[in-house]
Design a binder for these strands. Structure first.
Ligand SMILES: Nc1ncnc2c1ncn2[C@@H]1O[C@H](COP(=O)(O)OP(=O)(O)OP(=O)(O)O)[C@@H](O)[C@H]1O
Length: 734
DNA sequence: GAAATGCAACTTTTT
DNA sequence: GTTGCATTTC
């Protein structure tokens, strides 16, 4: 925020007329649709201040909904400087508070556990085992994904099932039962249960409408159906509702985000007044022109105007390099240059489509001693050693947590295996008792060995005793005692290579510190509050903006941020647009939006990189430059060819451009043709192979281009694996 | 029930 | 090239 802005009045004056109008409007539901960097978030923040100072709204009645906890904290912090204290939360956190307060109506006991993705997957797997589904033919991950998408659409497990989805539905049903038995919710449930609660209890709904009379929602383009319904319940007619978003920045379709929420907003709130902000304050005209051209390539969109007064000096520079290592070195060279010229490291960021690209960057930055932070990747709390500890804490807090118990029983090894757990589970089901009670009664469960029984008894006792320990001592002290009793250190040292074991033990130390830190900051909090808190945390929330480091993050994490200088690496066909499966590459427009989001984070300078070669898990990947490079306004673009790739370096010249265009188009068309060519075979089909002759299909694995078949060729005794994409494989007519 | 071995999938993005 | 998973072996 501007340093000169101290009073609400100055704050209002810092806005342009469009923004002012939007900030001051109070005539009913309001939707602000505007492009990148047009000040949407800023308007929302000013609006909150004005509501309190000009319209005498009690800040307690204002609820801001943001996309991440980080954005919520940011909003609170900015408002605090105007002495305004509002509630700012993500949809999930808001739903959690509602359920914590009133979930009892739905039979939820406190504390409510929150299952993350890993827990979800484990639960799906155990459901599939119980239903005797083969985990090879049905991918548990896909089933988990499917269940989440159902919840995004508020589809209950008892909805009618059709066709192939019948299997998924049966898993969903059992999954939900087990989740309920565990007194836990997954992410989708948080929203879905909050919706159910408010629908079922109109009085409660009214209570919340009175509590939060004014609602401000950011990043609305990435909300799902369930969240829109929750918003509708909270907002009612939406008399004091203000929603902002940019359909061109919708990048979470794969996670169930529904663009119709914003495109057809008037269907939920008929009296809506739509505001547009057309002036961009973030980027130079060069960056803006470049990216405007890119996003205009999307056909499925409504056009917007976006202009700026900021004259840029630097073109967008696109490097073509020979390898990922050269790419990383080039990025580092530039970073060092800019650093010398006075740009702080915290004002530079490297973005990529997939986290794996951060590896090479990291390696080279270490070499060069450039300080960096990586946002995202495998979250800290999902690392094995941390998850082990968390599961102990979870069973201490919530004895019904099935997935946590499973982990606790097996770590460290105590002679309790899969069999015993299944037996106890069955016993619990037959006698309609909680899993934790079945554990206590394991003596009367048939089929559990004496060794297992002993093991179970000792864990149960351990967990029980630590219930008190965590009450009577500080958490970190109690945790230390717990780890001692478990001989966890020995367990780690035994099960991992020394180096790995060391990082694991280091991580545990970090966790301990975090735990005591939290307890210090929240002296009245229960252990369950801490667990809930970390369950709802995201990687970007822990990102330290202040530190003097270059930030490395995925394009998705970059949403809503801004930096002076942005380096976007891996701009290659099939990498940015990421295409893993040629057959259903329909999300190209979302990929383009993602690219747009990344590029529009840059204030002054934007560097793009594409590499001819890259090493991907053991294999070599050769790629052509991304089609998105071609879609940028060529006038703003400067090509630097470090790879001797003439095809690319000359494309900006008129002839070269034609050639390059054909070059990429050919690549795309070729992929599509390729996809068409792949035949589908079923086990038992007779096939003919150009080299190996005729045979019969035994089975298959992989998908798309990587689809493989197991074929038993005539006259051979052992089947062979052949690639489906091998053009010489064809079906024989009987 | 747990260790040893072999093999497949893995790297899409995350509240 | 690795990791986690499944099968085999003890
Ligand atoms: N009227 C204004 N005068 C000066 N600077 C402004 C004004 N409005 C917004 N800005 C600045 O422009 C930048 C972008 O604003 P903001 O983050 O609110 O935009 P946004 O529309 O939410 O962006 P995006 O959708 O790309 O995340 C910020 O640095 C903000 O301070």
């Amino acid at each position: 925020m501007n340093n000169a802005v101290h009073t609400p009045c100055q704050l209002l004056e810092s806005l342009n007329d469009e923004q002012k109008a939007a900030a001051l409007y109070s005539g009913g539901p309001q939707l602000i649709i505007a492009g990148a960097g047009s000040g949407k978030t800023r308007v929302l923040m000013v609006k909150a201040v004005l509501l309190c100072t000009r319209f005498s709204v009690d800040p307690q009645h204002i609820l801001c909904i943001t996309f991440t906890n980080k954005a919520a904290d940011e909003m609170k912090k900015r408002l605090a400087s105007f002495n305004v204290t509002v509630t700012a939360k993500t949809f999930h956190a808001a739903a959690m508070s509602i359920l914590n307060a009133h979930g009892g109506y739905l039979g939820l006991k406190r504390p409510i556990g929150v299952y993350d993705e890993q827990d979800q997957l484990e639960l799906v797997k155990s459901c599939m085992d119980e239903l005797h589904y083969d985990k090879k033919s049905i991918n548990p991950g896909s089933a988990a994904e499917w269940i989440s998408r159902q919840k995004d659409e508020l589809i209950e497990p008892d909805a009618e099932a059709v066709g192939t989805e019948r299997i998924y539905h049966s898993i969903y049903r059992l999954y939900q039962d087990k989740l309920t038995a565990s007194n836990a919710l997954d992410f989708g449930d948080l929203i879905m249960k909050a919706v159910a609660l408010l629908k079922q209890y109109p009085d409660l709904c009214r209570h919340y409408r009175e509590k939060y009379t004014h609602l401000l929602v950011d990043e609305y383009q990435d909300t799902n159906t369930a969240q829109a319904v929750l918003l509708k319940l909270l907002a009612g007619e939406g008399k004091n509702l203000c929603v902002v978003g940019d359909p061109d920045q919708s990048i979470y379709g794969w996670r169930g985000a529904n663009l119709n929420n914003i495109l057809y907003f008037e269907q939920s709130f008929p009296d809506v007044k739509i505001f547009k902000l057309e002036r961009n304050y973030r980027s130079t005209d060069i960056i803006l022109n470049a990216t405007n051209a890119l996003i205009k390539t999307n056909r499925n969109r409504r056009d917007k105007t976006l202009w700026t007064d900021l004259k840029g000096i630097h073109n967008v520079i696109s490097y073509r390099v020979g390898s990922d290592r050269v790419e990383a070195r080039q990025v580092c060279d530039l970073i060092e240059q800019h650093m010398e010229n006075g740009t702080p490291l915290s004002e530079m960021a490297v973005f990529y489509r997939v986290h794996s690209l951060s590896r090479m960057m990291e390696e080279v930055m270490l070499e060069r001693a450039i300080p960096y932070t990586i946002v995202g990747g495998l979250p800290f709390y999902q690392r094995k050693e941390i998850k082990d500890i968390l599961c102990y804490l979870r069973v201490i807090v919530n004895p019904d947590d099935l997935i946590a118990w499973k982990r606790v029983l097996g770590v460290p090894k105590r002679g309790i295996g899969e069999k015993s757990i299944i037996k106890i589970n069955e016993f619990a089901a037959e006698n309609v008792i909680p899993f934790s009670d079945a554990l206590i009664q394991c003596g009367s469960v048939p089929g559990v060995t004496a060794k297992a029984r002993q093991g179970i008894a000792s864990v149960v006792e351990l967990v029980n005793s630590f219930k008190d320990e965590f009450q009577s001592q500080s958490w970190s002290t109690a945790l230390e005692a717990l780890l001692d009793q478990l001989c966890y250190q020995d367990y780690v040292l035994q099960n991992d290579l020394p180096e790995k074991a060391e990082t694991r033990l280091d991580n545990i130390e970090v966790f301990k510190d975090a735990l005591s830190e939290y307890q210090k900051e929240h002296p009245d909090a229960a252990l369950a509050d801490y667990l809930e808190n970390i369950a709802l945390r995201s990687s970007i929330d822990d990102w330290d903006t202040a530190s003097e480091r270059v930030s490395l993050m995925s394009l998705h994490s970059a949403k809503g941020l801004e930096f002076n200088i942005v380096y976007l690496i891996g701009m290659e066909e099939r990498m940015l647009p990421l295409i893993r499966d040629i057959e259903n590459a329909e999300d190209i427009e979302e990929e383009r939006r993602l690219c747009y989001v990344g590029m529009t984070r840059a204030r002054e300078q934007l560097y793009l990189f594409s590499s001819n070669w890259r090493s991907g898990y053991g294999r070599d990947i050769f790629s052509k430059p991304s089609r998105f490079l071609m879609e940028l306004d060529p006038q703003t673009l400067e090509i630097r060819d470090l790879a001797g790739d003439r095809e690319y370096s000359q494309w900006n010249k008129s002839k070269g451009k034609q050639r390059f265009k054909r070059f990429v188009e050919d690549a795309v068309a070729c992929d599509e043709q390729f996809a068409d060519m792949i035949d589908e075979f079923a086990p038992g089909d007779r096939v003919y192979h150009y080299d190996l002759g005729s045979g019969v299909i035994m089975g298959g694995s992989g998908a798309g281009e990587k689809k493989k078949y197991i074929v038993l060729f005539d006259g051979e005794s052992k089947p062979r694996v052949v690639f489906a994409s091998y053009a010489g494989l064809s079906k024989m007519d009987d």
